[in-house]
Amino acid sequence: MGETPRLVASDIDGTLLGDDRRLSARTTAVLERVAAAGTPVVLVTGRPIRWLQMVYDQLSAPLPAICANGAVVYDPDTDQVLRADPLDPQLLAEVARRLRAAVPEVSFAVEIVDSREMRHEAHYPLRWDADHEAIRAVESPEELASVPAVKLLARAGTQDPDAFVQVVAGALEGLAEATHSSYSGLVEISAAGVTKAAGLAWYAARIGVRQSDVLAFGDMPNDVPMLTWAGRAVAVANAHPAVLEIADEVTGANTADGVATYLEKVFGVG
């Protein structure tokens, strides 16, 4: 990428946000200056739609988002989903069946209604928004797979995330995508071909930006497809080794405004 990027795409957690899950004043200002100068900025995240508001509350204007690891493209100005690519119920049931056979102790949750709601098995350990009205336990495995889901979440007690995702990916080869974005042993499963790269490619084409003109930032394995696809891939210094290995460049850590530092240099907005 020799010219100024025409689209900036960034992961949220561990990349834009500090460890306190807050946007620094510097990062907020730089994102807003880049967007105001005419270069679109899009958030590309594993988060569901219902987790975006806590980020939007820290910005003067919300940014479009590619959610659920590429399964949902969301316009916050109109509160509309522009594109969704879920696992259909038949596929969801088959994925769950294969994983129960491979990992008998596995437990599941699903992100439904374009990730505005979540359903989970009774023994699935909730880490966030457990009391939210959009979160509900199901009474049977059949109910879990009764409606399309933009993401299936799998846990099996304490697991090494890199090893566990390999087990899951092996069981689902050719059927679905498996990745992870945390160190808690959670594996995130999407329909085959649904990745952050696919969602970002669709969005870039929609606004008329070439792949080579996209600048992307990330930190975890679920960012690897997006970073591999983008014209310029930048990892934050705290990134997972898989991300550091494929990135074109490395900027400062999320706790040191790494994305803001890089954007200030590229766009001269510091």
Rank of each mutant, 00 (worst) to 15 (best):
T4F: 02
P5H: 04
P5V: 07
V8P: 03
A9E: 07
A9K: 05
T15D: 06
L16P: 00
L17Y: 02
G18R: 14
G18M: 01
D19P: 00
R22G: 05
R22P: 00
R22I: 05
L23A: 09
A25T: 12
R26N: 11
T28W: 00
V30S: 07
V30P: 02
R33G: 02
V34Y: 07
V34E: 03
A35L: 11
T39C: 13
V41D: 03
L43W: 02
P48I: 01
W51H: 09
Q53L: 11
M54G: 06
Y56S: 10
Q58Y: 06
P64A: 09
A68D: 08
G70R: 06
D75C: 11
P76R: 06
T78Y: 02
Q80I: 03
V81Y: 08
V81E: 06
P89T: 06
L91S: 10
L92T: 05
E94D: 15
E94R: 13
E94S: 13
A96L: 09
R97H: 14
R98W: 05
A101C: 04
A101H: 13
A101L: 14
A102D: 09
P104K: 11
S107Y: 01
F108P: 11
S115W: 03
R116Q: 15
E117K: 12
E117H: 15
M118T: 13
E121H: 12
A122P: 03
L126Q: 11
R127T: 14
D129Y: 13
A130Y: 04
A134K: 02
A137N: 08
E139P: 02
S146L: 03
S146R: 15
V147H: 07
A149W: 00
K151T: 10
A154W: 04
R155P: 11
A156Y: 12
A156R: 00
G157S: 11
G157F: 00
T158V: 14
D160T: 05
D162L: 13
A163Q: 14
A163H: 11
F164S: 07
Q166E: 15
Q166N: 10
V167S: 05
G170N: 10
E173Y: 03
G174A: 12
G174N: 10
L175N: 03
L175Y: 07
A176C: 11
A176S: 08
E177A: 02
E177R: 08
E177K: 01
A178I: 04
H180V: 13
Y183Q: 15
S184A: 13
S184H: 10
L186R: 05
E188L: 02
E188F: 02
I189F: 13
A191T: 03
G193E: 06
T195E: 05
A201S: 12
W202N: 03
W202R: 06
R206V: 03
I207W: 07
G208H: 05
Q211I: 00
S212T: 15
F217H: 00
D219A: 12
D219M: 06
M220C: 04
N222Y: 08
N222Q: 02
D223R: 05
V224R: 07
V224Q: 04
M226T: 01
A230T: 01
A230F: 08
R232M: 11
V234S: 03
A235Q: 09
V236H: 04
V236E: 00
V236G: 07
P241D: 14
L244R: 12
E245T: 10
T251H: 08
A253F: 02
A253R: 09
N254I: 01
T255N: 15
A256T: 13
K265M: 09
G268A: 08
